[in-house]
């Protein structure tokens, strides 16, 4: 994957089975977001391909749901919890079509599943961090897909919010939903996800989380990152 002359991510190949939760790990600039973009089909690949089932990402769009980073959201926007969750139905509506009974049922179901039905009429700033995160998870659910791409879902959550989210994501996996999330915190990755993809502008390791997060792999992924930025000062090479 290239941005102009800069190669952001190369030599990467891995598979994620349906119904598993995978943490995409790596230092800043390792290519976590780039990988998510590739799976979403936003980024033309310089070489290689992404397949979702048998389909190109563009054609698998109804199966994919994307949850943005918390800091990318304008929490002062004049919109209620229900208003955000209803957006999940917009892509499947025609230009002059209004939300139907089936759409409303899906929205109600998503609000219910994430335990935010009582908050439906609230403006989104007047929620706790964990509740705010659940609003966007509910929007993803309302889309009706089965593959969820989350960009740093744990960033900015307090301990309680993190535990809440871990609980939800584990339940989703148990229900057969597929989750792919960019994650910063290795501890969270171990407790919350069954699989991992460790990146350092190329693939370091992929597979069951315990096999991926070995001391040797972590060392390679994170120290190598330092080497790129401060290698000259440190004057040491890594294999």
């Amino acid at each position: 994957m290239r941005y102009g002359r800069l190669t952001a991510l190369s030599d990467i190949s891995f598979e994620t089975p349906c119904g598993s939760s995978t943490a995409v790990l790596g230092a800043n600039g390792a290519g976590k977001s780039t990988l998510l973009r590739a799976v979403l089909g936003w980024q033309a690949l310089a070489a290689g391909e992404v397949r979702i089932g048998d389909a190109h990402p563009q054609h698998a769009r109804p199966r994919l749901a994307y949850v943005p980073q918390r800091h990318a959201v304008d929490w002062d926007f004049p919109i209620t919890v229900r208003g955000v969750v209803e957006q999940g139905r917009y892509p499947s509506l025609g230009l002059f079509q209004r939300l139907g009974a089936a759409d409303r049922e899906l929205v109600d179901g998503a609000l219910e599943e994430l335990g935010i039905s009582e908050l439906a009429g609230r403006q989104i700033r007047r929620l706790s961090g964990g509740q705010q995160q659940r609003v966007f998870l509910a929007r993803a659910l309302a889309q009706g897909g089965d593959i969820f791409l989350l960009d740093e879902p744990f960033a900015g959550l307090d301990l309680f919010g993190s535990e809440e989210l871990t609980h939800i994501l584990r339940k989703w996996e148990a229900q057969g939903r597929t989750v792919l999330a960019a994650v910063h915190d290795l501890g969270i990755a171990r407790t919350c996800f069954t699989r991992g993809v460790l990146l350092d502008t190329s693939l370091v390791a992929a597979g069951p989380i315990a096999d991926v997060l070995t001391p040797a792999n972590i060392d390679r992924a994170y120290r190598h990152g330092h080497c790129v930025h401060a290698g000259a000062a440190r004057g040491e090479a890594h294999p």
Binding site: L40, W42, Y66, P68, Q87, Y90, P91, Q143
Partner: peptide, 22 residues
Amino acid sequence: AIFYRSILLETFDPVFHRATGG
């Protein structure tokens, strides 16, 4: 009136709008 939903999505969350084919 016609593009109300696209305008709302593009204003509130352009990334989501794009992700869903907007």
